[in-house]
Design a protein around this nucleic acid. Structure first.
Ligand code: FES
Ligand code: FES
Lengths: 143, 143
DNA sequence: TCTTAAATATGATTTTTATCATATTACTTC
DNA sequence: GAAGTAATATGATAAAAATCATATTTAAGA
């Protein structure tokens, strides 16, 4: 479904959504451990997310990462797109040239409806929304 | 979702289901081209599928691959399991230790239902069933 | 303005996945 | 039973993904 990198990216963005604010920035080393991702690896991902405006960052002392209001309104799909790219999300599950209704592969009919539903959900859920669910205790964000 | 190898495996099994019988075996070179997968690569996959009894084979002249009745009754999920292994199909989408309802990750609630549906469908569809759909013209198995 | 703390840029290494190549074994047919 | 054909076993290479490492830049505070 997603690459490892995308999963890590989602985890870190959610972690920031829950634990950071503009006045309470968080450093890589303090993200790496709680979300259980190697420091150097997550550092690179965070840089990429920052460059694409999915998260905010300032450097130097007192610096770190955090989410501003714009960042909080991004969707999960936005995050995945930044890391994994557009293509594979709509690709045919049997790797035909393109996935479409007119000439569906044998798996299309039994998969596409569910797949579209997942896509729709990923597109509708803002980071903010997911973070809220965690604070309510409806879902969990550990290792 | 699936690895490239699994996709290729599914394609080749379906191709055999549609085009082969015990009296009409098919050689790698005659599978490779129509399903658009490199010969040496698909050869290796076919060997693995044969070893795990997902397809049938005989070697020597007049040899090749085909599906017997048992093979035709395998499910798509069986094929995927043989190639990709069990684990990743039920893994948490955010790579938590395990995916479960008691301690769901933030994505669990918006994904698991669809995912389970896909799994169920893959488990219920026999190779035979999918091949039949293709012969009816309801789905297509080209490149 | 100097020192220090943090992200950023860049790229090297490792691991996994995908791909390619070939010698060996088994089955047919003559 | 010899010759030829096709799968099988085995392993090498290439490409991509994941992981690690470090020099550079920016900002804060003394
Ligand atoms: S055509 Fe294959 S998944 Fe749509
Ligand atoms: S707990 Fe993450 S997908 Fe189920």
């Amino acid at each position: 479904m997603f690459s490892n990198s995308s999963k890590y990216a989602i985890k870190s963005v959610l972690f920031l959504a829950i634990n950071s604010t503009e006045n309470k920035k968080i450093m890589v080393k303090d993200i790496s451990i709680p979300i259980n991702v190697p420091k150097a690896y997550i550092a690179k991902l965070l840089q990429e997310l920052a460059k694409k405006n999915m998260i905010s960052s300032v450097r130097g002392p007192k610096g770190g990462f955090y989410l501003n209001e714009e960042n909080l309104n991004r969707t999960v799909l936005d995050v995945v797109r930044v890391i994994d790219g557009e293509k594979k999300l709509n690709a045919c599950m049997l790797s035909l040239k393109k996935c479409n209704e007119e000439k569906p592969c044998p798996l299309h009919n039994i998969l596409s409806e569910s797949r579209n539903k997942i896509l729709k959900n990923l597109k509708n859920k803002r980071i903010k929304d997911l973070a809220y669910e965690v604070t309510l205790g409806n879902s969990f964000l550990p290792l």
